[in-house]
Amino acid sequence: MIIADRKSLEEILDMIKDFKKILLVGCKGCVTVCNVGGEKEVGVLAVILKIARKKEGNPIEIDEKTLERQCDPEYVEQIRDIFDQYDAVLSMACGVGPQFLSEAYPSQRFFPAVDTKFFGGAVQHGIWEERCAGCGTCVIHHYDGLCPIARCSKSLQHGPCGGSADGKCEIAKDVECIWDTIVKKKMEQGRLEDLRTIRAPKDWQTARDGGPRKSIREELVQ
């Protein structure tokens, strides 16, 4: 899923400082699962913002709404009747949400309340880690299901580099060297020879480098 972190209170307050009445919109998709932008977090942020603004002597009115998904025009329609009753709309969805909202309601102003970070999952309660770089051409089968494009700091297709020490990446002691894990798995399974293959440079056209991407499923297009 898409993992996001909430922006700091200071940043959010600064973004909405000129507004007296806003709509705070959550999303029941990924950001609910990663506990950053669901109904509960919308409620908490609304309270915090109202208290902060009251303390500043500049009270703000905030209405709350959490959509099924902000990345789907069908659900984006759920604020059609109310969107223009506010000075601005603050979205707690990933970066996709406020853009779908902006496109659906061009006359309104939308602000992001979260920083969208990566595609990943929870490795334990409260800790999420990146697993996929969305490069558009999956190669994890070459590496026993582990992705060096997303998980190696240098996206090396032939690792580990000379900075790998004790299973950790050179950039920080709390970052796993995924290449160490790949190599050890291959060794345990007696398939180290797999890593003697020299791979061609990756074609990054399917990644963001090829420009904004689109996926068309002909059978579904009306």
């Binding site: 700091s153 240098k154 996206s155 090396l156 297709q157 032939h158 690792g159 580099c161 000379g162 900075g163 050179e170 950039i171 920080a172 020299i198 791979r199 061609a200 440079p201 990756k202 990054w204």
Partner: peptide, 24 residues
């Protein structure tokens, strides 16, 4: 060479490239 990660350097804010790796 692959190159040290920019995190060590004096422009840690920079975007890294690694279009190809040292073996490529």
């Amino acid at each position: 060479l692959s190159g040290d990660h920019q995190k060590f350097g004096n422009h840690p804010q920079s975007k890294n490239v690694f279009d190809i790796d040292s073996i490529q």
